[in-house]
Simulated scan of single mutants.
Amino acid sequence: MTGTRSTRQRDVIAQVLGRAPGPLAVAEVFERAQDDLPGLGIATVYRTLKLLTEQGRIHPVTLDGETLYEAAGKGHHHHFSCNQCGRVFTLHTCPVTLPSGTVYPGGFVVEAHEVTLYGQCPECAAG
């Protein structure tokens, strides 16, 4: 594998994640990246996701025990998981007012938080 091909794979996978409305599972990244890279292998996707994570270009999101990936640099945000279609969306508003440094009952000092809301996405709710 040449350096150029490897760079193209990294760029395509990073672009797939950058265009997604929320974090994607490995299989979704693989499927979407194959449009631009028909010969792409699943092992290459795993290696590239690991490398992009190490480079800070993407970051993992654990949701219901599954690791999903999304582009880095989205700032503070949360997720909505549709119980019907299974898609995960990025929410750009925070439903929780809990600043870093807050002391939660019991002496827990908050450093950060993640929230995932569950329900039906607009498309499934309308259908």
Rank of each mutant, 00 (worst) to 15 (best):
C82P: 05
R32G: 03
E111W: 13
Q120W: 15
V88G: 02
T102E: 09
I42Y: 14
C121H: 07
V61Y: 03
G86K: 03
Y69R: 01
V110D: 09
G3Y: 15
G18T: 03
D35K: 11
D64G: 14
A71M: 07
V103Q: 08
G41K: 12
L17G: 01
E114Q: 15
A20W: 00
R57D: 12
H79I: 02
I42R: 13
R10G: 02
F108Y: 12
V16M: 00
L24Y: 01
S100F: 10
G106A: 05
H79E: 04
H78Q: 10
Q9D: 11
A71N: 12
R32L: 08
T102C: 08
H79R: 07
A71D: 10
E66F: 11
H59N: 07
F80V: 03
A112S: 13
L49G: 01
R5K: 14
F108N: 10
G22D: 01
H92T: 10
P38K: 00
D64A: 09
T53E: 06
G86D: 06
V88Q: 03
F30D: 05
D35H: 15
A43W: 12
V12W: 00
P23I: 00
V110C: 09
Q9G: 10
A72M: 03
H76T: 14
L63A: 06
P21Q: 01
H76K: 14
Y118S: 11
V110M: 05
T90Y: 07
Q15H: 11
F30N: 02
L68G: 08
A43I: 03
K50S: 05
D36F: 04
T102L: 07
V29I: 02
N83D: 14
V26E: 13
G65C: 09
Y69N: 01
E28I: 02
D64W: 10
T62H: 15
V26T: 09
L37R: 04
R57F: 09
I58N: 05
Q9I: 05
D64F: 10
A33T: 01
P38S: 00
V26A: 09
G41A: 13
G41L: 04
C82Y: 08
S81M: 14
